[in-house]
Design a binder for these strands. Structure first.
Lengths: 224, 224
DNA sequence: CGCAAGATTGAGGTCGTTCAAATAAAGTGG
DNA sequence: CCACTTTATTTGAACGACCTCAATCTTGCG
């Protein structure tokens, strides 16, 4: 594993965005649009859970930090994903925009007021939580059992499916985000990607962010 | 990480316990008591999610396997814990009794029939799922960021709090379970515990399962 | 164009794994 | 209750995957 002095991560900079002026009582259910710049904090560990969010555009990372700055990104949230819905009064996890991002903020209290049978919305929320748990369980398998190559292969396949491209896409986050998500260092991420390129499984084209899955079947095999 | 040929884990043996004869329609909500022997499977990956469970006594582990047999135990479930409640039609995770264990099996369908405002029970279930997610998020931090000593220290503290003992308790699972939970090998678990003993932070007394936390504060410091 | 941030590459070190063997504990059957 | 077997745990020595540190290269942007 790694110490705080490693290249592994950089402690992000807050100040968060300003609180929402005040959602009009009529729009509690519809939510309020908010925009965030690259690396801007959406909420931090310990912030109160007044709002939860849905990604409208862009990408969000949620993460936890150790005292010495080591960071674990538990998930990336793409367009349509719900995040920040937690039971306690405080967020146990922090959220930041990976790039320029728009989210819809919903008042958490609005959930309770929903007639429970009118569950178009609450179902969506429950499903989102459920997906989170499933993802988390799967990711524990990745973190606990897989080696660097398997981790990267798994990650690339997951990205491809989430971006619904069969073979060509742009990595929406930098190496350090990938590293902190997979429990690796940026150097290992870089080297492992290079290795996959050398093995002819993927291509890097035009910058270091554009990936082409040359042989998805092989990648699937490598993902264990 | 490790390969399938390692000491890391043993693929558990199924056959599961027999299906419940048929819950009387009157007792759908109250659940049916079932007993399992050590290492007996409660449900497997792919089994249908007709029932979910609450631990009445004993200990349950839920886990995922890779094709080659590597195992990740995502959680241990103690008395009172709810497990096996998943949204899809199939379990994405398997469950086994760690030692002799009694559980209460509830029909999943019974949840839907509950008047949603009568949420004494459904709240409990939601709270259980929530706790699972929080635990998972925390555990990803452990798996992705912490070194062996920090992992073991974290684990021992968690166990102590779950068993609600301040300082003395019996490990209810074997080394390989701990290893597969923390993403380590049994040798590393053993060595790291030995190291903590040498440092005077904990004691092993009478067998290899009885732990005494000699210096909980130090342990907390070591857990990062 | 020139700078700053991100990504790659190289050399060396370390922590945890691997393989192997010894020890301890827990059953088992007489 | 004791020899005997089996299973769990510990311990040692050597290896290897990934990390660390440092330098170089690439890319995007003012």
């Amino acid at each position: 594993m790694q110490t705080a002095t490693t290249t592994r991560s950089s402690v992000p900079r807050f100040p968060y965005a300003m609180p929402i002026p005040s959602a009009s009582s009529a729009s509690e259910l519809s939510g309020v649009r908010r925009m965030f710049a690259k690396d801007e904090g959406i909420f931090g560990e310990g912030d109160d859970t007044e709002y939860f969010y849905k990604v409208a555009s862009g990408l969000v990372r949620t993460y936890k930090l150790l005292n010495d700055g080591r960071r674990q990104i538990d998930a990336f949230h793409f367009s349509g994903d719900v995040f920040g819905l937690e039971p306690g009064g405080e967020h146990k996890i922090a959220a930041e925009a990976v790039g320029a991002t728009t989210v819809i903020a919903y008042k958490r209290s609005s959930l309770k007021r929903l007639p429970m049978n009118d569950n178009i919305f609450s179902d969506q929320v429950l499903a989102a939580m459920t997906r989170r748990l499933e993802y988390a369980q799967n990711h524990m398998l990745v973190l606990g059992c897989k080696n660097a190559q398997e981790k990267i292969a798994t990650f690339l396949l997951d990205l491809a499916s989430r971006l619904s491209t069969t073979d060509r896409f742009e990595l929406p986050m930098m190496r350090s985000d990938i590293a902190d998500h997979l429990g690796l260092t940026i150097e290992t991420v870089s080297r492992t990607i290079a290795e996959l390129v050398r093995e002819g499984v993927i291509c890097l084209e035009a910058g270091h962010r554009n990936i082409r899955l040359k042989d998805p079947a092989a990648l699937r095999r490598l993902s264990a």
